[in-house]
Amino acid sequence: MKNEDRLHDELNEQAPFLNTLKQGQDGYQVPANYFDNLEAEVFRQLDAIGATRKPRPATARPSFWQFMQQLWQPRVALAFAGLITIALAAWWYFAPSQTDASADLMAAQISVDDAEAYLMDNLMELEPEHIAMVLPEESLPAITLDLPSPQKEKNNPAIELQLSPDDLENLLQDMTDEELKDLML
């Protein structure tokens, strides 16, 4: 059964007078063009209360030139220059000073004789490895080397040289001035 017919029956059963009244108009009217203007009025209200949704602009990636233009804006350039200044100052302050030892020796005006005398007086203080490092290669076979076994090397990786004080004295006697200077460093 259709809904309209069901309502008709329902009203006939409950309130027949209302069924009779329903045949005519209800008397309500609206101003002319009311519905035509409604949409604009709703949007005017939405604007007035600031509720209108603004479509989000498309977020395009800036081109290389746009990026460069942004970079060279005074604010950005100033910040960039400041950073570079701070980095240079930090490098200058913290960089290790590399002094040339031989230059220091020359600046101290120490003669070769003085250096030789110093080394002779402090012969026993010198490490054999240091002396071996400045020796000419041809003199090395004459020195008895106690080469470490693989196991020993594992425990003490430093190569040990066994030189007697006489050997050392002879070696120093044979050294050139330049070699002595290197030994002093």
Binding site: Q25, D26, G27, Y28
Partner: peptide, 30 residues
């Protein structure tokens, strides 16, 4: 904006006296 006759006007007055919820149900159905 109402130009109903006497009966329609009375029907409107009668509906106006209904509680809100009954008014909704009556209007949607009637």
């Amino acid at each position: 904006w109402f130009d109903g006759d006497a009966l329609q006007q009375q029907l409107r007055d009668a509906i106006a006296q209904l509680p809100e919820k009954q008014r909704v149900v009556f209007n949607l159905r009637y």
